[in-house]
């Protein structure tokens, strides 16, 4: 199931669970690719549920955040849900300083995030 360049994909209880392959998500070209790969998961019009696990991420640029905002907007417009989990404190600060934690539901652990999805 994993033939992506920038993301690792798993499917747990009908939830797309995504991890980033890059430790530091900052290269503009790879961020473009990452954005396209995330959007490709929403190719149909289904209301998808997606969890992005930041376990491996030590740096995340604002350009990468912009891709998540576009993704969230698309998921929301299709009636889907998105959660973020496993953010290091510094990466978590990115979302709180910019008030984006009001847009994204952020959970400490993957299990907690998976349990927080509303049933379809």
């Amino acid at each position: 199931m994993d033939d992506f360049e920038c993301i690792e994909l798993d499917n747990i209880n009908k939830v797309f669970v995504v991890k980033f392959k890059d430790h530091k998500v900052m290269d503009p070209a790879r961020i473009e690719t990452m954005g396209k790969e995330l959007m490709s998961l929403l190719a149909g019009n289904d209301s998808e549920r997606m969890l992005i696990n930041f376990d491996n991420v030590s740096f995340f640029s604002s350009a990468a955040i912009n891709k998540l905002i576009v993704l969230e907007k698309r998921i929301r417009s299709q009636g889907g849900q998105i959660r973020l989990s496993n953010l290091r404190p510094e990466v978590r600060d990115l979302f709180s300083y910019t008030n984006l934690d009001s847009m994204f539901q952020i959970k400490d652990e993957q299990e907690e995030a998976l349990a927080s999805f509303e049933k379809k």
Partner: peptide, 22 residues
């Protein structure tokens, strides 16, 4: 203000705000 509700989806001012916070 990139933290205002109406601006959250816009790509404007977020980078400058991050610099000031970090």
């Amino acid at each position: 203000d990139p933290t205002a509700e109406e601006n959250l989806e816009k790509d404007c001012g977020r980078g400058v705000m991050l610099i000031m916070n970090f």
